[in-house]
Amino acid sequence: MKTVLTNKNISIRTRRRALECYIEPILMYGCEAWTISKQTQKKLEATEMWFLRRMMRMSWTAKKTNDTVLEEAHTTRLLISKIRKRQATFFGHVMRREKLENLVTTGMLEGKRSRRKQREKLIEGLTDWLKAGKSLEAIEATKDRKKWRTMIANAVKQGT
């Protein structure tokens, strides 16, 4: 795909579409189950910018800011919001099923917790992104599909 993505004879819009169709699905494989920490988010944003710089044939040593690269590519950062939207959609699906996946996703399993720092749960990241307040509010919102879809749409509009 390098020859297609870096070809100057192809418009930037077409190259961006090729990136979205062929590369992003590979990058986002299994993202519904990821817990995105600040460090992971920075890495994903850096990867997105790396792809754009490669498409625009800009050296990483060139003193161009990310905002400049985004302006020249006529785009914005979309990867994190796409991942969060997929996570929220999948989370709503799992919460409505009320099976074993529900227990695993919410983290409400019996047993002892380890003594070290606790891992971040998927639901905690989603409630922060959706600005739902508490995780119980988000779980209750999944029961009503219309309300859940509205919450997701509002979060996508606001960005990450």
Rank of each mutant, 00 (worst) to 15 (best):
E98F: 06
K64F: 03
R116H: 08
T68W: 08
V94Y: 02
K42Y: 02
D128E: 12
E120I: 11
T89Y: 04
T105L: 15
A73M: 15
K42T: 06
L78E: 12
I123G: 01
N102Y: 10
A62S: 14
K82D: 13
T76M: 12
T40I: 14
Q39P: 00
I80L: 15
S37N: 12
M55E: 06
R113D: 08
L27T: 14
K85F: 00
K112G: 13
M58T: 11
F91S: 04
L70W: 01
G111N: 08
V94K: 08
I26Y: 07
L79N: 03
S81H: 10
A132L: 08
E124S: 04
Q41V: 09
K121Y: 04
A33W: 01
M56I: 06
V104Q: 12
E24A: 09
L78S: 14
T127M: 02
L100Q: 04
W129Y: 12
A73Y: 01
G92V: 05
H74C: 10
T61P: 00
R84T: 03
M55Q: 04
E48F: 07
I139Y: 00
R54G: 15
R96Y: 03
T142F: 02
M108A: 09
N66K: 09
K82Y: 01
K131Q: 13
L27E: 09
A46T: 12
R57T: 13
V94A: 07
T76R: 15
H74I: 06
R96D: 03
D128H: 05
A46H: 09
S37A: 12
T105I: 11
G133Q: 05
T68F: 10
D67Y: 07
K117D: 00
I83R: 07
R84V: 02
G111P: 10
W129I: 05
T127P: 00
T142W: 03
N66F: 05
I23T: 13
C31F: 01
V104G: 01
L78G: 06
E101V: 05
Q41C: 11
L70N: 01
A138E: 03
E137V: 10
L136R: 11
L130F: 03
E72G: 09
G30N: 10
